[in-house]
Simulated scan of single mutants.
Amino acid sequence: MWGLQSSYLNSISIFATLMSLTNSLNTITELVLVGFSNHPQAEIPLFFLFSVVYLVNLFGNIALIILVAIDSCLQTPMYFFLCHLAFLNIFYTTSVVPKMLFNLLASKKVISYEFCLAQTYISLLMGAAECIILAIMALDRYVAICDPLRYLLIMNWSMCVQLILGAWTISFFASVVPLYFTILPLCGPYIVDHIFCEVPVLLHMLCADTSLQETMMVIGASGTLLLPFFLITLSYLRILVAVMRMHSTEGRKKAFSTCSSHLTVVTVYYGTGIFMYMRPKSLYSAEGDKLISLFYAVINPALNPLIYSLRNKEVNGALKRVLERWPVSQAFF
């Protein structure tokens, strides 16, 4: 088995070396995307596993968006933001998973230079947007629990639209724009020892000193990771104080139940995101980072709709109403 893996990696190295010699005379066209090729015996099982996870992601998030769109009871600020989170999950994983699945079956495991850059931009944009949207959802829960009488006045549709437009705009200018102006030429051999292209991986392939890029990555992560995280923490501290002042046990349970799903998603996402983007370059580990990226780019987006729906009475109620309105039997007759 070890001989097979060694032979496989040697072939990749030879191919990458030849490609780097070719690209030294021309512009970069392709890079080797290693993925899980150092475990060739696991590629077929992983293909079926990730295919199922991707389908669950698509079905769950699309179903959630459709459910919110057709059920008036779910057309509230909370589910408006949740729909944007669902769209983000679909778009992010679609930029990563299909290419990863293709490479699991392909003998030539490469990715075009343009698509590699596209994945890098998309991962930064979607990551920043998810952090800010999660912060907005925390603020929404804060207003709903701490100032319920003025909730609809404060979180009106005009405010919701402004918040979500601001989230996408800030994410773009805080992530995509700085990367565009600091990207440097890559040095061979052009091997991406990862499951997709993202900034921490490409830093190891830049020809020049990467101190500026690392500093900008930390600054950008501080703005798009730590600042939203601070707002989330502050919101939940205020929520905790408000809940502890409630005299009704039922009221406390209801308040905590409306926040439990969001808290679960925040904990999982920020735990992996902070470790990935806020650590020094010296702590990089190829195999460990593959697992981390796999979790927050592939598995976590599939879990989000399940987390928000399984224990959510409003979503379950809306699903029952939709099924009663359009029975399955009508689809066949």
Rank of each mutant, 00 (worst) to 15 (best):
L303C: 13
T182W: 04
S112Y: 07
L82N: 12
L25H: 09
F87G: 09
Y113D: 14
F230E: 10
M159L: 15
I133T: 12
L74V: 02
Q41F: 08
L310T: 04
S95L: 13
M216K: 12
M244R: 13
C83T: 14
M100H: 08
I44H: 05
A63E: 09
C116T: 11
T249K: 10
P185M: 06
L263Y: 04
I111Q: 08
L303N: 06
I111W: 07
N312W: 00
V143W: 12
F196K: 00
C131P: 04
L203H: 03
L283Q: 07
L82T: 14
V315Q: 06
F15W: 00
T120M: 13
A69M: 15
H204C: 00
S282T: 15
P189F: 02
S282K: 13
V176K: 01
P185H: 01
I28F: 00
L165G: 10
L9T: 02
L18D: 08
S51N: 02
I136V: 14
L163P: 07
F256H: 09
F91C: 09
I111Y: 05
T272R: 07
I122A: 15
M217S: 10
W168G: 01
L203P: 09
I292P: 05
S222T: 13
M205Q: 03
G288K: 00
L134M: 08
L226V: 14
A167S: 15
F181C: 02
N316Q: 11
F295R: 06
A318I: 02
Q41A: 06
M159K: 00
G166I: 11
L186F: 09
A221L: 10
Q5I: 15
I122M: 15
F172A: 03
L163S: 08
I292F: 07
G251C: 12
D209P: 08
I66M: 14
